[in-house]
Each structure stands twice: as C-alpha cells, then as structure tokens.
C-alpha cells in the first residue's frame, strides 16, 4: 500500500451538489473500489475544501483518483515521517559485491544458516507448500537464471525451497543494493556482507543498467545460478509490474536458460510493508525453461519472460481454490539478545 494525501477543492457543480444533497463520500467509495482505504478526512477552511489521507495499492491507483467529478484534486505522495528522518540520516553509499560468497567457508557458513535463512520460514509459514511443474527442472543442467514475480520478503526463501538440490547448492540472489547493501547500517543482520553470507545475495543497483550486472555475469561464469525478480521491487497490487531488462541481459550475455516461476500466496502471508505474518498456502508454478538464440534483442527476451510468467499467473488464477480463513499470528523474534533489527 502507498499513502497519498489528497487536497480537494469543490468545483461549482460540487458546491451545488453539496448544498443540495448535503452528502459527501464520493472519495471513500472510489478508494475502496481501488482496494484502498480512506485513513483520515477533514473539511478545511482555506485554499482547499477537503483534506484526505488514503492508502491505495500503488501509484497507478492514485492516478485513477485524479478525476473527481465534483472536486479538483491534488494528489500528493506522502512519506512516513519516521522513515523520512531515517532516510535523511542514511548514506546512499553501498557495499559489495563479495566474491568470497562462493568460497568454501562461506558455503559452509550458509549451510549452517540455511534453516534460519530459507527453510525454517517456509516450513513454518507456507502451509501447504506446493510446487507444480517441477519436471521442468529435469532437463536443466548448468547455470540458469530463475525469475519470478515478487510480492513478499518471503519470496526468496519460498523460491529457494522449490529448487532442486543441485541448484540450491549453487544459487545466488540478486538483491536491491539500495536496500540490502547500504554502507554503515547498525546491526549485523542489516549489513551487506551478512546477506552475501547467509542468503548468497549480491547487490544490484536498480536502474544502473549493465554496470550493475558484472558480478552476476561473473557468478554465471563460475557456474552459479542466479535468482532475480525482474519486477525490480515487490509489487503490492497483485499484478505484474513491468519487467526490467537485467535478467535478459544476464541470460543473453552468458547464454544460459531462463526458468520462469510464478509464486502465489506469499503476499497474503506477509504483505508488503507489514511485519505481522500469518500461515498461508503457497503454490509455486515452474514454467518450461526459455532459451534465447544468440543475438536475441534484450527487450524481446524480456517480453518473452514477461509472457511466460503471465501465462503461469493466468493458469494459477484459473486453478485458484476458495480462500481459507487464516488466523493472524505474531512474528516470532528470532534475534538473539544484544542484536537489534531496529
């Protein structure tokens, strides 16, 4: 969900309507139709008539609200003040990548942390956990790029558990540099090197183009596979966001197959922006690997990847059972004393 402030001013028709019907509430219905929530609303004296705070799934939904029939609306993205202050104090410098992440000691360390990083969460929260189309992994040999939709922090764990053992041992995750690899954050579990060690992540600078993919190419050369979420961020709308071109560039540069996967149910376990988790059903659909001939245009390959995942999404949608009733459960604190997750 994204928060927006809406400043509305009645047009003359709106004023007439208000005087006549003495009713307001068009916005509330609109926001709810967009699966959003009206947080607060005030009537103002001054340059605007109504001040509203709304939560809607994304910026696109916010765009849909600009056309009010009775009011002229100014829609303003709002940032939580605590987050804003924290961001102000934070550097934009990032760390990594770490080549030692594929060394033997790092692999041993990661194996020891595996339950905490990947399998524990899936065993605890993803019930039942189903993988469909796993036979698509059968013919797969050597490094590959795994791509999937991205809706939750649990996605990488869920995806990891769906991979065959031979890939689990040699897989790295592309992670947003501006989130996981910020320099100088406090607490061990917020350090870039921690993510490199525990989940075998490597930083990808969003929007930096080919330059941020060098480490990914290096990993593929070393026969390691890569997981990337081509949407470039978690999507909270339930739809697929536009795919970034990075995964295609990697696959084309190193001539490796791309395996499309669609994961369903994870957003309900831990929606974006929330800390509380609840047990839920997870279904992962694996599509047939895509192989691109030499010289394929990256944007064509990206389109093909987008289509492949969308086809899995459509398949999932048509097979969806009625939604079970879920009990919310508080998140367990897994942090040893003395460490702070903030």
């Amino acid at each position: 969900m994204a928060r927006f402030i809406i400043l509305s001013k009645f047009n003359s028709e709106g004023q007439q309507q208000l005087a006549k019907t003495r009713q307001l509430g068009a916005l509330k219905a609109e926001v709810e139709a967009l699966h959003g929530k009206l947080v607060e609303q005030y009537f103002l004296l001054g340059s605007f008539d109504i001040f509203s705070i709304v939560d809607v799934p994304d910026g696109e939904a916010a765009h849909l609200m600009t056309a009010g029939a009775l009011t002229k609306r100014t829609i303003i993205p709002a940032i939580d003040m605590k987050l804003f202050t924290r961001l102000l104090g934070q550097t934009t410098e990032t760390t990594g990548p770490h080549r030692w992440q594929i060394s033997l000691p790092a692999r041993i360390g990661r194996r020891l942390l595996r339950k905490q990083t990947f399998t524990g969460d899936v065993a605890r929260w993803c019930k039942p956990y189903t993988v469909l189309g796993a036979e698509n992994f059968d013919g797969l040999k050597g490094p590959a790029v795994f791509i999937a939709n991205h809706a939750s922090h649990l996605d990488s764990s869920a995806l990891y558990c769906a991979l065959p053992k031979r890939y689990q041992r040699r897989v790295a995750f592309g992670a947003a540099a501006d989130r996981f690899y910020i320099k100088g954050r406090k607490g061990i579990k917020k350090q870039g090197w921690w993510f490199s060690l525990s989940s075998n992540s490597f930083p990808i600078k969003r929007g930096a183009g080919r330059s941020s993919l060098a480490h990914g190419e290096w990993l593929l050369e070393k026969k390691w596979s890569i997981v990337i979420f081509p949407e470039g961020a978690r999507s909270s709308s339930g739809r697929l966001a536009r795919f970034r071109v990075g995964p295609a560039l990697l696959a084309l540069a190193k001539d490796v197959p791309v395996v499309p996967m669609f994961m369903e149910g994870l957003a309900a376990i831990r929606p974006r922006g929330q800390k509380a988790q609840q047990v839920g059903a997870v279904t992962i659909r694996v599509g047939a690997p895509l192989r691109f001939p030499q010289g394929t245009d990256p944007s064509t390959a990206t389109k093909a990847m987008e289509h492949a995942i969308d086809a899995l999404r459509v398949e999932a949608k048509s097979a969806r059972p009625p939604r079970p009733i879920l009990e919310p459960v508080a998140v367990p604190t897994l942090v040893p004393s003395g460490l702070s997750l903030g």
């Binding site: 307001l24 005030y42 009537f43 103002l44 004296l45 001054g46 340059s47 605007f48 109504i50 001040f51």
Partner: peptide, 12 residues
C-alpha cells in the same frame, strides 16, 4: 500555511 480543519463527519 495553516488551515483550520474539522472531521468530515462533524462537517456533514
């Protein structure tokens, strides 16, 4: 810029 406000329900 400060504007006096009232909750929408009390305005209605």
């Amino acid at each position: 810029t400060t504007m006096p406000a009232m909750t929408l329900s009390s305005f209605i």
